[in-house]
Structures are given as C-alpha cells and as structure tokens.
C-alpha cells in the first residue's frame, strides 16, 4: 500500500475513532461545566442508548422512531441518576462524586447485562454499507454520520448557550452560582437538566457508534475514559476544545496503530493525558478559556 494512501487511511481511521470519542466528550463537558461533576458513567449512557435503540429496531420500529424514543428514555434515566445519586451528595467533594459516578456506571452495566445479556448486538448503518473511496483509502458512511452529528451538536450547543435565555442562564450558573440564585435561576434545576440532556446526547452518540463497532454492555468503559481524556486535554472548559481533543486522540491512536503496534494504543492516550496534566493542566486549548462552553 502506498505511503500516501496509508497516511490518508490512517487519518480517516483517526477521525472515525475521534468522532466516537467526541460525541461522548461533549456530554461530559456539559455536565462538568454546569455542575462541576466529572461523570465517569457518561460512556454508559451511550451504551444504554445503543442497546435500547437496537431493541426497538428489532421490535419493528422504524429507525428514526427508535432513535428518538431511545434518546428520550436515556434522558429520563439521566434525570433519575441525577436525582438519586448526585443530588443527595451534592455537597460532597468532587472526588466522592467521581466515585459515585463509578458506582452508578457499575449499576448501568449490570442492568444492561440483565436485559440484553453479554453478547454484542448489531445495528445496521444509517445509510447503507457502501464505503466511500478517496485516493485509495476508504471511509465508512457511518463515520461521516458520526463526524457530522458531533459538529452539528456543537453548532446547536453554541447557539443554545450563546443565543438563548436558558443557555445564558445556565452559563450564569456556572460563572456565579450564588448570583444566579439571586436572579431566580435554580442551580439544582440546572444540574438536573444538564445531566439529563448530556445523557440524551450520550445516547445519541452510542446509537451513531453502534453500526461501526457493535453494541454490548461493556462498550462504554473505554469510550467513556477516552472521552474523559479528550475533555481534559481540551481543557474541560469548552466543548469545541474537547472535540478537538477527541479528534487529536483518535488520530494519535490511529497513527500509533498504523506505524507502531496496536498494543500500545491505550498507553499512548494516557501518556498524552499525563503530559497535558503535568505541563498544561488547563488543557491544550486553554488560551480560549475564560468563557465556558
């Protein structure tokens, strides 16, 4: 295989993997910015979304309906999660909350096994299987969906946070919780909505990912972690940076696999994380920060 076409193929692979991480990272960043919570169960929302959607599709629902219903269901689950696990512990330290989300993630996985078992399930790609060829490299149409949807979410979020009242209220909450309360904005309600919406976003991410890599109870673990890393690399403070971070990791992993060996793939991402943490804890793109989301 020619050098250039391998290179391009690796870029495509990297973008595909990166878009998977990006979609999860968005939800992650939203929650963090609004509530200060680091949600290690974010990947599992994706998992729940994917499996629920597959169930509906297998019951005979058209894809669009299945997607919509699944997203709504997972959003509700997110809300329950917030009320039952986060809200009662809202005054605990970040570390405690982090571990609570780990516990919740276990619960999601366990319930998932009980409902869907351990075998991976398949979801057919949204627009068929014909791969697109470009300079001797191929990219799946589903990857384009993933990339597209992450960019679209980004645009929607930008609009939401910068152009709507609710969005600005939410930002206010983040900047100064007390002042926000004085103005009649309830941080607790914000927290509830932030987690719920992120859950829904995560579900959507899972549904988009499923045709590429299959869906099973444990798909959320590594994806959630890598998205976490992406967000941290991006600086945790805004979604575009997180998405950039996600694509960065995706491409880095891809190139490691392509030129070195696949065994080190995970180690590379975590090494990058450590480098960023030690030398640039505000993230690689932190020049932009000041304003969140």
């Amino acid at each position: 295989m020619e050098l250039t076409s391998q290179f391009i193929q690796l870029i495509f692979s990297g973008l595909t993997i990166g878009s998977i991480y990006a979609l999860i990272a968005i939800g992650f960043v939203i929650i963090y910015n609004i509530t200060g919570l680091l949600n290690l169960a974010q990947g599992d929302f994706a998992m729940l979304g994917a499996l629920t959607c597959i169930s509906f599709v297998n019951m005979g629902f058209p894809l669009i309906i299945a997607i919509a219903v699944s997203v709504v269901i997972v959003t509700i689950i997110g809300g329950l999660f917030e009320r039952l696990a986060i809200y009662p512990a809202r005054n605990s330290s970040t570390a405690t909350l982090l571990i609570i989300t780990i516990g919740a993630a276990f619960v999601f996985r366990g319930i998932s096994i009980l409902i869907w078992g351990t075998q991976p399930l398949a979801l057919r790609p949204f627009s068929g299987n014909q791969n697109i060829n470009f300079l001797d490299a191929t990219i799946q149409p589903q990857s384009l969906w993933a990339i597209g949807i992450s960019l679209l979410s980004l645009a929607v979020l930008y609009y939401f946070f910068n152009k709507t009242y609710l969005g600005k209220a939410v930002t206010a909450c983040v900047v100064n919780r007390f002042a926000a309360r004085l103005m009649g904005i309830s941080p607790q309600k914000m927290s509830f909505w932030a987690v719920s919406i992120s859950a829904g976003l995560g579900a959507l991410a899972g549904i988009v990912i499923a045709p590429i890599s299959g869906a099973s109870y444990d798909m959320g673990i590594m994806i959630g972690l890598k998205a976490f890393i992406a967000a941290v690399i991006g600086g945790l403070s805004n979604a575009p940076a997180a998405i950039a971070g996600a694509f960065l990791i995706g491409i880095l992993e891809s190139f490691t696999e392509g030129y070195l060996s696949s065994g080190y793939k995970d180690a590379i991402s975590f090494t990058l994380l450590l480098i960023v943490l030690f030398f640039m804890p505000n993230g690689l793109f932190s020049k932009v920060s000041g304003k969140r989301v």
Partner: peptide, 11 residues
C-alpha cells in the same frame, strides 16, 4: 448481580 449490588452499595 454482584456488580449491580456493589455499585448500589458504593453509591
């Protein structure tokens, strides 16, 4: 069940 149980217990 163990996984679920310990998750709940942890929380």
């Amino acid at each position: 069940f163990e996984i679920v149980f310990f998750g709940v217990l942890l929380v």
